[in-house]
Write a protein that binds this DNA or RNA. Structure first.
Length: 270
DNA sequence: ATAAGGCCCTGACCGC
DNA sequence: TGCGGTCAGGGCCTTA
């Protein structure tokens, strides 16, 4: 599942493949993948555009075009973007093809069809609800504390809420809570100042290391070139139910919090 | 306002 | 081997 480190990897690895390339043709096979405008208008508007700027906000990829418009891509669970030579056939899960002037093609592939793509003049309204970027300098423990102290929901649920923090998903939430030694069911308003500081540091650590390893490849995530990420080898609790805790040896437990699997050590995380 | 649950989707997996 | 049931979950929507 692409979270902040996986989306960051996508943006970094797509830039050298796409920068400066002009879009010469479009094929949309699953129109619902285009969130806005409608597929016909999307096609007319994007032909002739050239990729010019690459950025990320939370789990959104921002592929800026020469005109100033932005192709916003959210991979959700199983979205993939690849740039292939023209002789590479697309499969039944490919929902969008963009022909590039160098002869190659951008393939948007997404078996679950949860991902969405927008072509907009200004991405601000799409991004308006998002909380702070966890790796930006303005995301301080103090600012994090302001988001948590009045909330009764569990800290796990709050970490998954993109209005609290942009970019953390199920993997990095569990890994950060384990490293900070905080139980995932603790209410947000029960966390002490020192615990918030530990969690803040743990979030930044797992996201930075996730980027360094080019993301976590479990069942789905594959990088633009077809390679896997490596951070799954560094996971300490995620999908390790009934395996020994790497810190104390007690078996890792799995519970459900807001419909999401949650993995933790009941001895280490109080 | 927050919190919780349903929904979209399909491949993988399980038990019979 | 085939088949029905269950699970995975990000973000949006509805309900309380």
């Amino acid at each position: 599942m692409p979270e902040l480190p996986e989306v960051e990897t996508y943006v970094r690895e797509l830039e050298p493949e796409l920068w400066g390339r002009r879009i010469t043709g479009v094929a949309v096979y699953w129109p619902r993948i285009i969130a806005a405008p409608d597929a016909q208008e999307f096609t007319a508007a994007i032909i002739g555009e050239r990729f010019a700027h690459f950025d990320r906000r939370g789990k959104y990829m921002l592929l800026g075009l020469e005109s100033g418009r932005v192709l916003v891509v959210h991979l959700r669970m199983t979205g993939e973007v690849h740039v292939h030579l023209p002789d590479v056939a697309h499969d039944q899960h490919t929902h969008l093809l963009l022909d590039l002037h160098d002869g190659r093609r951008l393939h948007y592939r997404d078996p679950r069809k949860f991902g969405r793509i927008w072509l907009v003049d200004d991405p601000t309204p799409i991004l308006a609800k998002l909380g702070p970027e966890p790796l930006d300098t303005d995301f301080s423990p103090g600012r994090f504390a302001e988001q948590l102290y009045k909330r009764t929901a569990s800290i796990k649920a709050l970490l998954l809420d993109q209005r609290v923090l942009a970019g953390v998903g199920n993997i990095y939430a569990d890994e950060a809570l384990f490293r900070a030694r905080i139980h995932p069911l603790r209410p947000g308003n029960s966390l002490q100042k020192a615990e918030i500081e530990q969690l803040h540091a743990a979030i930044q650590e797992v996201l930075q290391r996730g980027i360094a390893y080019k993301g976590s490849s479990l069942q789905n995530y594959i990088r633009p070139g077809g390679m896997k990420g490596g951070f799954q080898e560094e996971h300490l609790v995620f999908r390790k139910t009934d395996e020994p805790c790497p810190r104390c040896g007690q078996l890792i437990e799995r519970i459900i919090i807001t419909q999401r699997s949650t993995h933790f050590c009941a001895r280490c995380q109080a």
